[in-house]
Nucleic acid binder design. Structure first.
Length: 302
DNA sequence: CTCGATCCCTGGACGC
DNA sequence: TGCGTCCAGGGATCGA
């Protein structure tokens, strides 16, 4: 489940492998996760990949203008553009030799000028791909929150403490912070000893500043370790990340808290599985922790 | 403003 | 072995 550290890892990999390559042709499979599939076929060929950037959980492939082609002018291809890529839950993007067999869920192949193909593979198709010109890209990127690695103490406090939503919901809200997902939300709340169901406005100044500090520390360490591989995340070289070994809350229901040995619990907060230590992260008043049935067991509605 | 519910999608885990 | 069911989750959307 790619979040900021995983997307950063993939973006760094792509920077090392496909920067400067020219896109020669486009082959599409299923396209229901692509904004305008024909725009890819129409506007990508002839463009060079000039930069790979990350914006929250999005990757941005910056594309050159197409030069010296009569067709380009009529196409509007004489101006730079971008390919927006979101990996969703199960998306992977990596270059492969064009001769290599296509995997079952590979839905986009961009033939490059060196004989390789940049391939996007996504079994669940929760990802998103969009070809965007400058104006559309700018519009697309409005409404996102602060970069969690860059956000100042003051801005973080402002964005959290002025809100009555649960802190877990705020951390996951891309218009508050861009790039945090379920894993790093739970990990940072555990480190900061804050229960996920607490309200933003009810956090103390000290707690909020601690949360910012541990969130940044965790994200930075996770980037160094090339992200967390839970089920199927692989970086652009096909390697799994290592940060899952450092998880202290996420996915550890029933296992002992690393600080106090109390078994980690799971509750649904903000509609998501949330893992926390009931001892270190006291449940706020009024939040009932309903016992969750054991994983994998059948549940009946009666 | 904030909430929960629902949908999208498939693979994997598990019960029987 | 195989079938049915549940679950994971980011994001959009809609109604309360």
């Amino acid at each position: 489940m790619p979040e900021l550290p995983e997307v950063e890892t993939v973006a760094r990999g792509l920077r090392q492998t496909i920067l400067g390559r020219r896109i020669m042709s486009v082959t599409l499979g299923k396209t229901d996760f692509i904004d305008d599939p024909s725009a890819l076929e129409q506007h990508l060929p002839g463009r060079q990949i000039e930069a790979v950037e990350r914006y929250g959980k999005f990757m941005l492939l910056r594309l050159s203008a197409v030069n010296g082609v009569v067709r380009a002018a009529a196409n509007g291809d004489t101006v730079p553009a971008s390919l927006l890529v979101h990996l969703g839950m199960t998306g992977q993007i990596a270059p492969a030799p064009a001769a290599q067999p296509i995997e079952k869920h590979t839905h986009v192949c961009l033939l490059l000028d060196d004989g390789r193909e940049l391939r996007y593979t996504d079994p669940r198709r929760f990802g998103r791909i969009a070809y965007l010109t400058k104006a559309l890209l700018a519009e697309e990127l409005t409404g996102f929150g602060a970069d969690p690695l860059e956000v100042s103490k003051e801005e973080f406090v402002e964005r959290i403490c002025g809100r009555r939503a649960r802190i877990k919901a705020l951390l996951l809200d891309q218009s508050v912070l861009r790039g945090v997902g379920n894993i790093y939300a739970d990990e940072s709340l555990w480190r900061a000893k804050i229960h996920p169901a607490r309200l933003g406005a009810r956090l103390s100044r000290t707690e909020t500043e601690t949360l910012r500090r541990v969130l940044q520390d965790i994200l930075q360490k996770a980037i160094v370790l090339r992200g967390s591989s839970i089920s199927d995340f692989l970086d652009a070289e096909g390697e799994p990340g290592e940060y899952q070994r450092h998880h202290r809350a996420y996915g550890r229901e029933g296992k002992n808290c690393h600080r106090c040995k109390t078994p980690i619990r799971r509750a649904i907060v903000a509609g998501r599985s949330s893992y926390f230590c009931p001892q270190c992260q006291p449940v706020p008043r009024g939040f009932a922790v309903l016992p969750l049935p054991k994983r994998g067991r059948k549940r009946r509605k009666d």
